[in-house]
Nucleic acid binder design. Sequence first.
DNA 1: ACTGCTATACAACACATTGTTCTAAAGAAG
DNA 2: CTTCTTTAGAACAATGTGTTGTATAGCAGT
Lengths: 195, 195
Amino acid sequence: MTKPEDPRLTATRDYALENSLEILMSDGLLAVTHNAVSKATSISRSTLYRHWPEVSDLRNATFKKATTPPGPTESQTNGPLHADLTWLLNFLVIALNDTPWGQVAPQIVASAATDCDAQEVLAGFIGDRLSRVEEVFHAAVNRNEIPTSTPISDLATMAVSVPYFRKLIAGLDIDAKWLDSHVSLLCKLANSTKN
Amino acid sequence: MTKPEDPRLTATRDYALENSLEILMSDGLLAVTHNAVSKATSISRSTLYRHWPEVSDLRNATFKKATTPPGPTESQTNGPLHADLTWLLNFLVIALNDTPWGQVAPQIVASAATDCDAQEVLAGFIGDRLSRVEEVFHAAVNRNEIPTSTPISDLATMAVSVPYFRKLIAGLDIDAKWLDSHVSLLCKLANSTKN
DNA sequence: ACTGCTATACAACACATTGTTCTAAAGAAG
DNA sequence: CTTCTTTAGAACAATGTGTTGTATAGCAGT
């Protein structure tokens, strides 16, 4: 029942966002403006203002595009825990290292401090990520691979927070080798929290 | 031998930075401008430009003021581990919750993504924090409170990264009660990594 | 208190950016 | 072909950034 959109609308919108995303990654959030996008795309300024009346609209749209879920839609819970965790967290490492998300995340963190929309985007995305990791731990408990007393929520937070912290805050690398040792430690911790 | 500075210089500089810091905390980094500070302080715009020729100078000065080390200069390593960690991490919780640092940190994280100076400020501050936590763990090892095989560096990263992650990225609260359970988990983990 | 020096206030200015509005032309849909 | 919508382009106001020049007020040394 929804009549298809005018192809011109989608065309300019997609083309503009493609380029605004590139600007965001290379020059940061505050470089994303109607003027900059206009120069990069040769789309008229007035047209851009027609699509996104304010700068904040344009920027929101841009990093909403940048946060298209870099990760799996379903968790892999076949076990063993080490494999599941590696598989899952590897998506996070890749996202942070090799996709727009890694470049955009810091900007969103900053926006979230003052902007409610950004806060919601970020919390939603992070919450989703956390619950996937929790799923994996729960599955391990159900397989009797780790004790029932495992503080799943805490371990999941640790699993996710460390890569974010290293990459965004501490300025440390996160690579495959680091990930392996990180996951190994998590597994050991999960196994040793019995009593 | 250094002649004392003209009192007028220090007066206006201090007064300006005081207010620019407030602007930074309430409205974010990009709200810190010569105009805004001028309006807030009734200091002439030209005077502000005299002190900080460019916006970036003003902003750098502002968040350099905001990052006066919120924390102890020396770690407390009397033991037990739980007490030392609580004492130390409590400074971090307070800094994030009740000082300018908590408001400014997200902005610096964003700046660090593109700006080298900010990256250095951040890395230095974080590295300092991490090494203090490591000291505490080392002391516990020396007291034979936790095994020698304890992965100190990893645990220290976890100790610090989780509060940062919760506060800055996940939008979760960090209070005294949470800190207690966090520290308890860390102690348990340190104790159970024998094998 | 007088004199030279420096910081500040104020106003005027050039310039870039943000955002609005109007008109004409080009494309889509019937 | 006709009608509606989108776009391009230019002109415009408003604001923000950064500069310059001048007059005033406060600091230091004599």
